[in-house]
Amino acid sequence: MSPSKQPFFKSILTNLILSSAAIATLSPTASLAEDVIEEKTIGMELARDLATEAIKACREKGYSVSAVIVDRHGNQRVAIRDDYASRFTLQIAEEKANSTIMSGLKSGDFRAQRGDIRPELNHVNGVLIMVGAVPIIQGGIRIGALGVSGAPGGEKDEACAQVALEKLEDRLLF
């Protein structure tokens, strides 16, 4: 190759290397994402036991309810409907739990704090801003949510959910 063509090819090669480096640097997968993500989420046995305990707590007070557990992403893990609870209580319980996943708060606390946008949030598919759901936290990490529906008032639903958390708190510690 003639000496006069060497700078031209060297320039092209340098630009290709710099362009490749710039693309790699700007690529979201190269700079922001991880190839493997580890996370805590609620297991089936704990989800089942929490839902069962919430239903038992409401039964003791004379209420027939449904209890739904969703994982940290709002995916249903367990749904249990007591014998006399209407089928609609399953949907309401799940949507209450989803509002807790969305906010990180008890659904009643979220309802109280965000009255300014509550009507709009109730139009989000799969979310219902009503009292009756609590976050499930293990070791400081929200691993899911428990929603209850069917008692005469959301505060009674929430109380049953809280009883379930307290009853199984030893399984939620580190």
Results as ranks from 00 to 15, higher is better:
residue 12 I to K: 03
residue 14 T to R: 08
residue 16 L to G: 10
residue 16 L to K: 12
residue 17 I to G: 11
residue 25 T to R: 06
residue 25 T to F: 01
residue 26 L to C: 08
residue 27 S to C: 14
residue 28 P to G: 08
residue 32 L to G: 12
residue 34 E to R: 00
residue 35 D to Q: 10
residue 35 D to K: 07
residue 35 D to P: 04
residue 37 I to Y: 01
residue 38 E to V: 13
residue 38 E to N: 08
residue 43 G to C: 15
residue 44 M to D: 07
residue 50 L to F: 07
residue 50 L to Q: 03
residue 52 T to W: 06
residue 53 E to M: 00
residue 54 A to S: 09
residue 56 K to Q: 10
residue 61 K to W: 15
residue 61 K to M: 13
residue 62 G to L: 10
residue 64 S to I: 15
residue 64 S to A: 15
residue 66 S to D: 01
residue 66 S to A: 11
residue 68 V to F: 10
residue 69 I to L: 10
residue 70 V to A: 06
residue 72 R to N: 02
residue 73 H to P: 07
residue 73 H to E: 09
residue 73 H to T: 10
residue 74 G to N: 05
residue 75 N to E: 09
residue 82 D to W: 02
residue 83 D to V: 04
residue 86 S to F: 11
residue 87 R to T: 15
residue 89 T to K: 00
residue 96 K to R: 03
residue 96 K to T: 07
residue 97 A to Y: 03
residue 97 A to Q: 04
residue 98 N to K: 09
residue 99 S to R: 14
residue 103 S to A: 04
residue 107 S to F: 05
residue 108 G to K: 01
residue 110 F to A: 11
residue 112 A to G: 07
residue 113 Q to R: 09
residue 115 G to I: 15
residue 118 R to E: 11
residue 119 P to L: 07
residue 119 P to H: 01
residue 121 L to I: 14
residue 121 L to W: 12
residue 128 L to Y: 07
residue 128 L to C: 09
residue 128 L to A: 09
residue 129 I to P: 00
residue 130 M to E: 15
residue 132 G to N: 04
residue 133 A to W: 08
residue 133 A to G: 03
residue 134 V to A: 11
residue 139 G to D: 08
residue 141 I to P: 02
residue 146 L to V: 14
residue 147 G to R: 08
residue 147 G to V: 13
residue 148 V to T: 12
residue 149 S to L: 12
residue 149 S to A: 09
